[in-house]
């Protein structure tokens, strides 16, 4: 079933249309990928999903419920978790405390005693202490637990963000370049982790530049360019798509972008619309 759904989402910054008429679905239990060149609008899409920017039009819904109009923290409470492209860790706290804060914030708003999601463990609602240890273990952060996050290398700090997001027990997780800063073997392990999490019910939307990782873990891909979805489908379909190749490599003409068409760069007097 479609967990998270974007319908004709557009985000405008002044005169610039950063995200234009994007529709996309994220299903539970699998990893969906969102790729595209720099400045294509991937992070802006994330921000619009979790309410950090206000879309100019379109709809975001979670489990069929329209969440476009509610605040960031309320969306989080409904089950949207995320990490950040530019790190937003709690740098004066330790690794353990970062995850602990995520857990404690969840406990402050989650009144009913929800059972632990399947993707974390096989049932039960462990004590907070155990749950933190469980997450540390899953992410291989155990040995670093007492380190201040401010002193960690980027790759590990990204894992801390992931752990913190998991502690809030989201149903959909938005990951913004989680593997940058990891080395090759760490990336492999990380890919396995994503696959396991998804296999146990978590819906994941992944923005990542490591294309090998994306191709391996994602069962569905959407490609953004100039804020528009130019292709979507299975990794194989996308890889073969001519529009995608041109978006990355710049050969064939891209889809019609009326906003920019016909600008006379050479200074001819020809009429142009913009």
């Amino acid at each position: 079933m479609n967990l998270l759904e974007l319908e004709s989402l557009s985000v405008r910054f002044g005169g610039h249309l950063a995200v234009s008429d994007v529709s996309m679905k994220v299903e539970g239990g699998r990893v969906s990928g969102l790729i595209g060149p720099n400045g294509a609008g991937k992070t802006t899409t994330f921000n619009a999903i979790c309410g950090v920017v206000t879309p100019s039009s379109g709809r975001v819904s979670l489990g069929g419920k329209d969440i476009s109009k509610i605040g960031t923290h309320k969306r989080a409470r409904l089950g949207i978790g995320r990490t950040f492209q530019r790190l937003e860790v709690f740098s004066s706290l330790t690794v353990r405390e970062n995850i602990q804060v995520g857990l404690e914030i969840r406990r402050s708003w989650s009144r009913r005693s929800a059972t632990l999601p399947q993707y974390l463990a096989d049932g039960g609602d462990p004590k907070p202490e155990d749950e933190i240890n469980l997450i540390l273990e899953r992410l291989d952060l155990g040995p670093l637990a007492e380190q201040p996050v401010g002193a960690l290398p980027t790759g590990h700090a990204r894992l801390v963000e992931l752990g913190r997001a998991l502690a809030a027990r989201p149903s959909v997780l938005l990951l913004d370049e989680p593997a940058s800063g990891l080395d090759d073997s760490e990336t492999d392990i990380f890919g396995d982790l994503l696959i396991t999490l998804a296999a146990n019910g978590l819906g994941i939307l992944l923005v990542e530049h490591d294309v090998a990782l994306v191709m391996r873990v994602c069962s569905h891909l959407s490609v953004l360019d100039f804020g528009q979805v130019i292709a979507s489908g299975s990794p194989e379909e996308v890889r073969a798509n001519e529009a995608v190749l041109s978006a990355y490599l710049g050969t064939a003409p891209a889809p019609e972008t009326p906003e920019y068409s016909g600008i006379d760069l050479a200074g001819s007097t020809q009429e142009a619309g913009s």
Partner: peptide, 9 residues
């Protein structure tokens, strides 16, 4: 080329 159509680029 960032954010520009290929023709413009």
């Amino acid at each position: 080329s960032m954010g520009l159509a290929p023709l413009v680029v």
